[in-house]
Design a protein around this nucleic acid. Structure first.
Length: 258
DNA sequence: ATGGTCGAGTATCGA
């Protein structure tokens, strides 16, 4: 099973690039973030034409997440599971895709360490763990995919000295991520490729992509039954090139399901 | 030279 994630930064602006990518990468499951669409505006027919069913959770202007699957999609949960504090934004959607519990996440940015949004980000990551415990368990096949807006380690940013006192690299954020991993999730891409300089996001400004100034903030977190069956993983940098790219590249992993 | 670009929507905010 090929499981992919991509922060598309507006599906309206990116639809043709996403269609192109699906037609050659052929993932079984694609998690998208920042669709910036209301549910009623989602272009379902474009995805159906490529063989995908879609669960989308969005409210329009910002955020918005989706799961596209060609191996079935059931038990859809929009936002956090019932009983937990409701999210104020549309930042996650969960579904069962061919026996795998898939969650597409768009973790809050945080903006700055002093901003209220940073506290929201930390609380959000804690609630995500409660959500996972409510809908599944780490001994089952679980894939939590998306834009985590956290670079797990120093090697995940282009220059650590540029990230002193900023979000995405602070210790509380990294601890929140480590706590998720302790729940039973593995950073699938990182476990196979230890090199630095492997990024998923490059700011549009200042030619950052061409200067290799990036960050690895998009992750595929897999439970042990999946992490142990990973064949390979890839960040498709080609999808960050050319006309009207997202500022994120898609990332996928191939898992040999039993 | 301490910015630089996108996408939302149409003035600015968010990333």
């Amino acid at each position: 099973m090929r499981i992919a994630t991509w922060n598309v930064n507006s599906l309206k602006a990116r639809l043709s690039r996403v269609e192109e990518w699906l037609s050659y990468a052929k993932p079984d499951v694609l998690c998208m973030q920042e669709t910036k669409l209301a549910d009623t505006a989602f272009p379902h027919m474009a995805f159906e034409a490529l063989g995908y069913e879609v669960a989308h959770h969005g409210d329009g202007r910002w955020n918005g997440v989706a799961i596209c699957s060609r191996v079935g999609i059931d038990d859809v949960v929009n936002g956090f599971a019932s009983g937990l504090d409701a999210d104020r934004d549309t930042r996650l959607v969960t579904a069962n895709c061919g026996g795998v519990s898939v969650t597409s996440v768009y973790v809050p940015n945080g903006r700055s360490l002093e901003d209220e949004h940073y506290q929201y980000k930390l609380a959000w990551l804690a609630t995500l763990e409660e959500h996972l415990s409510a809908v599944t368990a780490p001994d089952r096949p679980v894939a939590v995919c998306g834009d985590f807006n956290v670079a797990p380690e120093g090697r995940d940013v282009w220059d650590e000295s540029k990230f002193v006192g900023t979000t995405h690299t602070s210790e509380p954020e990294r601890q929140a991520l480590a706590k998720l991993e302790k729940w039973g999730l593995h950073d699938a891409f990182r476990e196979h490729y230890p090199d630095d300089g492997l990024y998923t996001y490059w700011d549009y400004r200042a030619g950052d992509f061409h200067e290799h100034r990036g960050m690895r903030i998009d992750l595929l977190l897999l439970s042990a039954p999946l992490a142990g069956a990973v064949e390979w993983a890839l960040v498709d940098r080609n999808a960050r090139k050319g006309k009207l790219p997202s500022d994120h590249a898609p990332l996928f992993v191939d898992v040999a399901l039993p």
